[in-house]
Simulated scan of single mutants.
Amino acid sequence: MTSAPSTPRIALVTGSTNGLGHAVARRLMADGTTVILHGPTPASVDAARERLGLAGLDLTRLETEVADFTRLSDVAALADRVAARHPVLDVLVNNAAVAPTDTRTLTEDDHELAHQVNYLAPYLLTRLLWDPLGAARPGRVVNASSALHRTANLNWGDLDRVRGYARIGAYAQSKLALTMFTRAAAVAAGGRILAVSVHPGILSTGMLSLYARVGQPVADGADVVARLCRPETTVRNGAYYDGESEAPVAPLAADDKAIARLWKATAKVVGLDRQPASV
């Protein structure tokens, strides 16, 4: 007797209309995963969907979502829609990010642009999808970090960088905070969720100017991220990877007191003062 086909895995990949996120979405779809493709505008999402179709991928394994991460209300609404359709979510790839501008820019929520899009938004999205991710037992959260997180520090009284703003410093801080959150999420989930952060390499994307003039092909970074999404890939919960290898983190990202302090401060900012039910 033939066994019934298994339910396809579901992965939400943020910032997947171009660059690394789009390449990751393509890899996961090729693996048979149903991908929720996310972008900031309907036009960007439609164009990305068309490119995947032209590449010969099965669009019945594709869902699309629009949410502008410069608005935290959009992030919350995205989480609500995804959770309503998918009480079990296998993978969340927090890839959406911006390169900060030369001058300090504020979002509609009055936060520095990179701090919100690169850190507050993925924090909020992950927390709001906690139950669907935990239902996968374990779901995976893969956070696109950066080796630049090791150059950053946190000014606890000025996380929105009102004083001493610098473009690369703002980006590095956002990736340090995301790396710290990765470890916090791994601990808080108590094994129900596996969370890792990764530097996928210096790639030829819109972020290249923050690193160098020449980058690796985006496909190389997508291979790294997609590998961490696969259930057969063994990972250490809460760890940071540089490419395929586990790597050291910045001192603050290994400081339990600092990690707990950032979790609590961020929860207050985004209106999630309560800890997840599993803690």
Rank of each mutant, 00 (worst) to 15 (best):
M29Q: 13
A79Y: 02
A67D: 09
G19V: 08
D46V: 06
G53V: 08
L12S: 05
L20A: 03
P87L: 10
R51A: 14
T41M: 00
I36S: 06
V35Q: 04
L72M: 13
A77M: 08
L54R: 15
A84D: 11
E50G: 10
L37Y: 06
G19H: 06
S16R: 06
S73E: 15
A55H: 06
T33L: 05
L72E: 07
L37N: 06
E63T: 09
R49M: 07
L20R: 00
T70Q: 13
L62H: 08
A76C: 05
I36Y: 03
A84Y: 01
H38P: 07
A83N: 00
N18W: 01
T60Y: 03
H38T: 08
V24H: 00
L52P: 09
P40I: 09
H86C: 07
S44A: 15
A30K: 04
T70L: 12
R49I: 02
T41P: 01
R81Y: 01
E65M: 14
T64P: 07
L57F: 06
L20D: 00
T34N: 13
R27F: 01
L78C: 08
D58S: 12
A83T: 04
R85S: 02
R81C: 02
L54S: 15
V82H: 02
A47M: 05
A55N: 06
E50A: 14
D46F: 01
H38E: 07
R71K: 14
S73P: 07
V45D: 13
L37A: 08
V66I: 14
V24S: 02
T17E: 04
G53S: 13
V75E: 05
T34M: 15
D80Q: 10
D46I: 02
L57S: 10
A11P: 04
V35Y: 04
A79L: 06
L37R: 03
H38I: 11
P42D: 14
R51P: 05
R61L: 15
G32F: 09
M29W: 11
L20K: 00
G53R: 14
L12P: 02
H86I: 13
H22T: 04
T41V: 02
L20H: 00
L62E: 08
R85A: 03
A47W: 02
H22P: 06
A83D: 00
L59G: 13
V24W: 00
P42A: 14
A77K: 08
A67C: 10
V35P: 04
V45F: 11
T33D: 07
T17H: 09
V75N: 04
M29H: 10
A79V: 10
A43R: 13
S16Q: 07
V66A: 08
P42R: 11
E65G: 06
V13H: 01
L28H: 04
A79R: 01
A43T: 13
A83Q: 01
G21F: 05
F69H: 07
T41Y: 01
G21R: 03
S44V: 10
E50I: 00
P42L: 14
A11W: 05
A79W: 03
A30Q: 08
I36H: 04
R26H: 09
M29V: 12
